[in-house]
């Protein structure tokens, strides 16, 4: 049985693992990938100590720091369930099952899906959740960006120099993004903003050919070869049923990163912590590790 299992290796999980390793805990990290959302970020200018660093570079630094401690790491592995049994926590993944005296959930957030027909079928076949990755493939093509917040407008701004025309499909009556981004998008005639419009489906053959949209009264089709889904994020918290969550599915924690179940701690973007920032996630990870250490000392 492990002392501590950390689920996730983004800024929160990695920082927790470094703190736990320095306390010589018998430790395991299980994660789908390394770096989490930080690895997907563009330029970072607010992580103290780095006036400027890119997401992949910062994620690389985090990983290097973790590797220095030779922490046992199961990468490419997804936890499917955890629950408390008597005085320990049992967990299962897509590759095995585990037992630990304490767990830190630091599984972060993932991009939200539209939930419309054709979405799964055309994923990576013209439909993408990563504008920064796949945007350049749509040179001189007509594309649609779905969403109206900062990430949607960020995608539009990235695509302005690449795509031929951009339809911005926004379900709300107005764009929710920051004014400075909104103004840049609104004044550009390469962009058609469609508010009060919902996506009903994605269609094509081997690749995307278009989308069906609804303005309330009628359903129209829009011929596009690229669909960029940017409608926000959801916490990766579905594998744990018994902990309390808020209405957004974020795990509720107290100031010591404890959940309502003794022995289960949580940190970073998967929790109801006020702000979602790399530096906050890292700090929360260290707090969770120290709380878990105290819990283990007390219950050992």
């Amino acid at each position: 049985m492990y002392d501590l299992i950390i689920i996730g290796a983004g800024p929160a999980g990695i920082t927790a693992s470094v703190y736990a390793a320095r306390r010589r805990l018998n430790l395991l990290v299980i994660t789908k990938d390394i770096g989490g959302q930080a690895a997907w970020s563009g330029d970072i200018e607010n992580y103290t100590g780095y006036q400027f660093i890119t997401g992949p570079e910062l994620a690389g630094k985090f990983e290097e720091h973790m590797r220095k401690f030779n922490i046992p790491l199961k990468e490419n592995e997804r936890v499917t369930e955890i629950k408390k049994i008597k005085d320990y926590i049992w967990g299962e993944s897509d590759k095995g099952s585990y037992e630990a005296r304490a767990v830190i959930i630091a599984s972060g957030k993932k991009t939200k899906e539209l939930g419309v027909p054709g979405e799964k079928e055309f994923k990576n076949k013209g439909l993408t959740y990563c504008a920064i990755c796949d945007g350049p493939l749509f040179a001189d093509k007509e594309v649609a960006v779905i969403g109206g917040g900062n990430s949607a407008l960020d995608a539009v701004l990235q695509l302005l120099t690449i795509a031929k025309h951009i339809y911005l499909i926004n379900a709300a009556a107005n764009l929710g993004a920051e004014a400075i981004m909104r103004e840049q998008v609104e004044k550009n005639d390469k962009v058609t903003i469609m508010n009060n419009t919902q996506v009903k489906g994605i269609f094509g053959d081997s690749l995307v050919k278009g989308i069906n949209i609804s303005t309330g009264k009628e359903i129209k089709t829009l011929a596009v070869e690229g669909v960029f889904v940017e409608i926000g994020l959801v916490p990766n918290s579905e594998f744990v049923q018994d902990v309390q969550k808020n209405e957004r599915g974020e795990i509720k924690i107290n100031r010591s990163n404890e959940t309502n179940i003794p022995g289960i701690f949580a940190a970073g973007d998967v929790t109801d912590v006020q702000e979602k920032q790399i530096i906050i996630a890292a700090g929360e990870g260290s707090k969770a590790a120290l709380s878990a250490f105290k819990y283990l000392a007390k219950t050992g």
Binding site: S41, I132, C133
Partner: peptide
């Protein structure tokens, strides 16, 4: 692509 973090 030049911008994709996982490509880097």
């Amino acid at each position: 692509t030049t911008t994709c973090p996982f490509c880097i």
